[in-house]
Design a protein around this nucleic acid. Structure first.
Lengths: 134, 134
DNA sequence: ATTTCAACACATATACTCATCCTGTGAGTG
DNA sequence: CACTCACAGGATGAGTATATGTGTTGAAAT
């Protein structure tokens, strides 16, 4: 449904959002999230290049969520790691399928697609923080 | 979302459902569906072992959909190739997430999950046939 | 019986995701 | 400067999904 890597990324961002302003070391994040440390720094690197996260090397260094990223929709995060979602075509490619000649799955798939799309675009990184919960 | 193999399986069954009672050679099915011939026979073999399809070797041989399989829900087909769906847990495993302490994605995910589940269980192999369309 | 056709089974190849290892590099400390 | 800390990044490996290749088996035609 969503790749392991994509879920990792959201876990990471959620954890960073829980500690605003703090610089967390990769090792700490790995321990807190349960993501393999070596792999995690790679993901954080991509998040940094994309501008969602900032990092600091050396003593006292670590990673922190950039405040500008708080409003980023999780769709953008998933895209970063899985490429454009491309849910345009019909799921099963059973045959040519459009509005006029829908395949047997068309209506059903439309619902799945739209609810997924809604989720991806309604939730932002800010919402991933634990503190958001009442 | 759904594996390539799973989509292949549905394409195959849809094609067979389009030709009831006929015995189609693997090569023909491959050509009609665009699925790699060698890979296709593997999938057809699994479908045969599961009882959805019957086969005949030798001259005049080929594959045919078993009439008993017409009512099979596509959930069963997908399970055959991808194992039990197991959409139980929360998508992103952000943290412990249940009804009382839902994660930020919980409500959204519930919708995705249920519409997917509905599709898988509402559509049967019979429905995959082109002729079903008005 | 021999030939031919097509499924069947097993082995191998390829691609991608996920994960690990190792070395380099910049930043701070004493 | 010498040293340590922690990110940066390339190379490598394990595991799985996807795809191909080769020979074997069964059934019909001749």
């Amino acid at each position: 449904m969503v790749s392991q890597t994509g879920r990792y990324a959201l876990r990471i961002l959620g954890h960073l959002a829980d500690h605003p302003g703090e610089r967390l070391r990769g090792h700490e994040i790995a321990q807190a999230t349960g993501i393999p440390a070596n792999y995690l720094t790679k993901l954080l690197n991509q998040l940094r290049k994309r501008g969602f996260v900032e990092s600091q090397k050396g003593w006292g260094g670590g990673f922190a969520l950039r405040s500008e990223a708080l409003g980023v929709r999780i769709a953008e995060v998933i895209e970063l790691f899985e490429g454009p979602a491309d849910h345009a075509g019909c799921v099963f490619e059973l045959r040519e399928c459009d509005e006029h000649k829908p395949c047997p799955l068309h209506g059903h798939w439309e619902k799945v697609r739209s609810s997924l799309h809604a989720m991806m675009n309604a939730v932002s990184i800010r919402d991933l923080a634990t503190s958001t919960r009442p």
